[in-house]
């Protein structure tokens, strides 16, 4: 591991100023550290300065009507332990519990998961299906970016130099589900995953697939095929076919392309049916 110094700013302004004061390639931002420390250990990241966000007031979870705003440094475990998340955003509850183990989720954060942009993220697909937005703060003020535009590619985000993720905003409570296929049920990486959510306001489905590089993606053709609220079996079949046909599913060392495409139909069908029970 390369040597670094640990900087612990007390306010968001101070944190942004610290980032601004150093060349971007010399600085790493530390939230929970459960992913970052691998890259520091492996030498893939040669940060001379590590900026810890632990003193910032971003360990928050706020419901405002049907809108949920989650602070970027809140441990994931606090999200799954919120009874309203479990009841009103069941897909998010399941996706959070799909990340690592309890002990890992006591430190890992939503901001870290987004900022690190792992192609294997279990949270990004669910956030896509929930139309979540990322609130950013930086030297030139604040801005909000949809998750779909924030996560650009494997390990690549729309974060500008000296910008930080302050929070993630989920616009409405949605019947939702997250299903995955892996070797071990818990504390493993998904080979293939499907996130679905039904927007009551928009009367439409959102469908994201994940588990393969370079990043989780929404599949509009599948959303259109599912139609309004209660899809029929042929609707489901057409939605699955559109994913198999159109999604840029590829092979990597974890699974073949064919295996992943075969998993689409059962995962999608079960996920949509799980939401259907809630819609009733």
């Amino acid at each position: 591991m390369t040597e670094f110094d640990l900087i612990v700013p007390s306010t968001p302004d101070e944190a942004v100023a610290v980032l601004h004061a150093h060349p971007p390639e010399e600085v790493a931002v530390l939230a929970g550290g459960t992913d970052l420390l691998f890259d520091l250990d492996g030498g893939r990241l040669r940060a001379r300065h590590v900026v810890s966000l632990r003193r910032l007031p971003w360990r928050t979870l706020d419901w405002n009507g049907a809108t949920l705003t989650i602070g970027s440094t809140l441990p994931l475990r606090a999200i799954e332990n919120d009874p309203d998340v479990r009841a009103r955003l069941p897909g998010l509850y399941t996706a959070v519990r799909a990340v690592g183990s309890v002990a890992l989720r006591h430190r890992a954060t939503l901001g870290g998961n987004l900022g690190r942009a792992s192609p294997a993220s279990d949270l990004v697909p669910m956030l896509l299906a929930l139309d979540a937005e990322v609130e950013l703060v930086g030297p030139s003020g604040e801005r909000t970016v949809p998750v779909d535009r924030f996560v650009e590619a494997s390990r690549k985000t729309a974060l500008r130099p000296s910008e930080l993720i302050r929070a993630v905003r989920i616009p409405e409570a949605r019947p939702s589900a997250y299903l995955w296929q892996r070797v071990r049920p818990f504390h493993d990486i998904s080979h293939m995953a499907v996130a679905v959510a039904f927007s009551p306001a928009g009367a439409r489905w959102r469908v994201a697939v994940a588990g393969f590089p370079p990043r989780p993606i929404l599949v509009p053709a599948a959303e259109a095929a599912l139609g309004p609220a209660h899809p029929s079996d042929p609707d489901l079949e057409r939605a699955a076919e559109s994913i198999v046909r159109e999604a840029p599913i590829v092979a990597d060392r974890r699974a073949s392309e064919e295996y992943r495409r075969r998993l689409v139909r059962p995962l999608l069908t079960r996920a949509v049916r799980a939401c259907g029970e809630e819609l009733r």
Partner: peptide
């Protein structure tokens, strides 16, 4: 907590 993934200073 996983002590292998926790910086002591944190």
């Amino acid at each position: 907590a996983l002590s292998c993934l926790t910086l002591t200073r944190e």
